[in-house]
Amino acid sequence: MKNSFVLRNVKRVNGEEIDIVIESGKIAEIAIAGEGHGEQVWDGAGTYVSSGWIDMHVHAFPEFSPYGDEIDEIGVKQGVTTIVDAGSCGADRIPDLVADSKQAKTNLFAFLNISRIGLKRIDELSNMEWINREKVKLAVKAYGDVIVGLKARISSSVVGDSGIEPLRIARELSDETALPVMVHIGSAPPNIEEVIPLLERKDIITHYLNGKRNNLFDMEGKPLQVLIDAINRGVHLDVGHGTASFSFKVAEAAKQQGIGFHTISTDIYRGNRLNGPVYSLANVLTKFLYLGYSLEEIIAAVTTHAAAWLGKPELGRIQVGDQANLTLFTLRNEQTVLIDSEGEQRVSDQVIETRGVVIGGEYIEC
């Protein structure tokens, strides 16, 4: 479906029914439902429309195993128009990731791994010689239109004997490049109370709802003081579900304590896409619907909130004159079993399912 077409009888998340007329890839008109006209008509009765979903934490470099996948497999084919690769590549391979993105339909941004080898190995910060400050700065200069931040995975299996030092270097590189840091948190050492105080405004804690012993909540489910202090400093909380980093019990406690997300992301790659527990961004969003968050809150986390963090507000809106960047999805009343990273199950009465995206002047069915 190209050129001029209309999405008829679609509804915004607030329930308002509209037609969206798209011409030459741009939104030409937002009309009252049933009154939009185009060369082709897509009947969206019962379908929600939002600005295109943004997944803030994916792994989209297929050459690296186990953490890799094809860009469009975790992008437009899943109803996601923009993905942010979370440090798959360091300075050695970021040119290849950028080249791959030019062949894909999905928009791609990236966090640059501070280790030049990236996820070629899964202990990429265990050897301090793999952190080359000059190569980081050169990569940021060369690919500044794609690189949106720096990535440091700060957990014991990644840093080994390097301890907290890689994060200290990431902090210095952040100051030198004016880029924020996304920090993966996981098993100690380093202890979480060493890690979080080093984060500043706009830095991201990803995996903030993980169920590991070194997490951000105490045994009673109350947030640690370092988390409260970080939120007050303007540190951003990202879900980053992943294979081992999302716990229903922790998420339930966080909601009870009023510790909400800024963005919901998947940490998706081939293995957890095909075999779970992630499967898709829609599946992860369904988990938050089960937890009692409103549809408006959930969709904002993957549209306006993510777009604002990226400094790309146009990606989070539906406005006449903008490039058409849309996700179409339904909310189906059907019981489904949801599984977290701990193997815990919950049963949801509603399921979010994607139907398609509009990007590059084209409607792509999921």
Rank of each mutant, 00 (worst) to 15 (best):
T330C: 12
S341K: 02
F329P: 07
R346I: 00
N333R: 14
T327D: 04
E353T: 11
Q345S: 13
D340F: 06
D340P: 11
N333A: 14
V337M: 09
L328D: 08
L328N: 08
T330H: 11
Q350M: 11
Q335T: 11
L328H: 07
L338T: 00
Q350T: 11
R332T: 14
N325D: 10
E344D: 15
F329N: 02
G343D: 09
R332D: 13
T327K: 07
N333M: 09
A324S: 09
Q345V: 12
I339W: 01
E353Q: 15
Q350G: 06
T336E: 14
V347G: 03
G343K: 04
A324W: 06
N333H: 14
T336G: 10
Q335L: 10
Q350R: 15
L338P: 05
T336P: 02
R346V: 04
I339E: 11
S348M: 00
T330N: 14
L326K: 09
Q335H: 12
S348K: 01
D340S: 08
R332L: 13
T327G: 04
V337R: 11
L326C: 02
E334P: 01
E342K: 12
T327A: 05
N325A: 00
L331E: 07
N325R: 08
N333L: 12
S341F: 02
E334V: 01
I352H: 06
L331S: 04
L326G: 05
S348C: 02
E342L: 11
D349N: 11
L328A: 06
L338Y: 01
Q335I: 02
I352T: 05
I352A: 07
E344G: 07
E334Y: 00
Q345T: 14
E334I: 00
V337L: 13
E353R: 15
E342F: 04
V351D: 01
R346L: 00
N333G: 13
L328Q: 08
I352V: 09
S348L: 03
S341G: 10
L338W: 02
L326A: 08
I352K: 01
E344S: 13
E342T: 10
F329E: 02
D349Q: 12
L338Q: 01
I352D: 08
L338A: 06
G343N: 03
E344C: 05
V347H: 02
R346E: 04
L326R: 05
E353S: 15
L328T: 01
A324T: 00
T327I: 02
A324D: 05
V337I: 14
T327C: 02
I339L: 15
V351I: 10
T336S: 14
N325Q: 10
